[in-house]
Design a protein around this nucleic acid. Sequence first.
DNA 1: GCGTATTGCTACAAATAATGTAGCGTGATG
DNA 2: CATCACGCTACATTATTTGTAGCAATACGC
Lengths: 112, 112
Amino acid sequence: MAKQSASRSRSVRGSRTGRPVMALLDLLGRRWSLRILWELREAPLTSRGLRTACDEASPTVLQARLSELREAGFVELGEGGGYGLTALGRELCETFIPLHRFAERWRSKRGA
Amino acid sequence: MAKQSASRSRSVRGSRTGRPVMALLDLLGRRWSLRILWELREAPLTSRGLRTACDEASPTVLQARLSELREAGFVELGEGGGYGLTALGRELCETFIPLHRFAERWRSKRGA
DNA sequence: GCGTATTGCTACAAATAATGTAGCGTGATG
DNA sequence: CATCACGCTACATTATTTGTAGCAATACGC
């Protein structure tokens, strides 16, 4: 571990290019990142609730992603417990709404 | 390897839930997937050109992602060589346009 | 034809990340 | 005090990524 303690040590891959999209793309391109944001899109969830929602993903990764997402300012841990999106995180999630409908169209154009 | 030869053997993680978004989220949540789509968004690129654009990512992953993305119907290999987005892939990329502006806002709200 | 250069793509060892299972410390509730 | 859920962590096993090298095929100039 000791990954999030070193903060932005590894940083984000594409940030070298100076384009923040790359940083965002790299962050969101890590396993479970998108899924976590998606599951939190409606209501906050406890860490264990999130784990259940995420198809029983291992707590190790979940915790890692949660830390990254928190550091990025997309997710926060409520005082009474439970993870929820920040205002910024909600903004980001708005971006994914069209993805839902796209996914439906996508399926219909494949084997299904 | 022998991963893409088995086709959809492993399938996509969230597809068990029956919701195609999960499948899409899992596919896009693999390393370099988002980045590849992003780099192809404007014009097609050769495999090596894509590699350069993707910060010299290893050809192994690139090829793996390319195969998955092709199978998903988002990317295609042009007859004259070079990878490009399909119509469906372009549709998907449209979804990410807001991400660009969001990333800019995101940076301004952090350290910068 | 021969050397060179490109294309898409693969092999393979080393490094890194994810999985799965177990469990910690803390705080609330019984 | 026993129990439960919370956020979070350890750790061995397994999967994925990295980095470097190189293949077969298709062109190019000479």
